[in-house]
């Protein structure tokens, strides 16, 4: 038995899962596929976490299980990973819920399409013209108009003498 092979392979596999998940998130445009990629990355991370408690030849850390004095694997990562899994599942469930409602409203799960629509809606709500209609160029006016308060009121008597 080659001790490094199992551990190394496991670690590499875990990290590989994370990497594959990350790449999947970037490459995919479909929201559900992205979600799957996320799940994969999470599995990788969880695997990595639980691997940290691994000891070669050790047994599960349950009281009264196995011979006394036998090496136990570190129990803490297992606890942690349980928590992490629960969190992950929660987030994914939330994501699926939102995803379903998005699909119902827009009829698509294509990321680019949805993003465009979101931008359009934000702009419409704010009353902004669609991007691309450039602002009018700053025209060089021949003369700036005199502000209104400097203007003569025609109704007032012109030959006034103010003190």
């Amino acid at each position: 038995m080659i001790p490094w092979s199992l551990e190394t392979v496991s670690y590499a596999g875990a990290i590989g899962l994370v990497v594959i998940g990350g790449l999947g998130l970037v490459i995919c445009n479909h929201l559900f596929r992205m979600l799957l990629a996320l799940a994969m990355a999470e599995s990788g991370a969880n695997l990595l976490l639980v691997l940290t408690g691994f000891r070669d030849g050790a047994i599960a850390p349950i009281i009264g299980y196995g011979p006394a004095g036998a090496p136990l694997v570190d129990p803490l990562p297992q606890v942690l990973v349980l928590t992490a899994i629960v969190i992950g599942v929660g987030v994914q469930a939330l994501a699926v819920a939102v995803l379903v409602r998005v699909y119902r409203s827009y009829g698509t799960l294509d990321m680019r399409d949805l993003r465009r629509r979101m931008e359009g809606e934000i702009a419409a709500a704010a009353g902004i013209a669609a991007p691309g209609s450039a602002q009018a160029p700053l025209g060089q006016r021949p003369l700036p108009p005199v502000p209104d308060y400097e203007l003569v009121r025609r109704s007032a008597p012109v030959r006034e003498r103010g003190a």
Partner: peptide, 18 residues
């Protein structure tokens, strides 16, 4: 609807960050 899309995008970033 737009908030949901934003949420989803936020969620992916946040979850991958986690």
């Amino acid at each position: 609807g737009r908030a949901r899309i934003a949420t989803l995008r936020y969620l992916f970033i946040s979850a991958f960050g986690s």
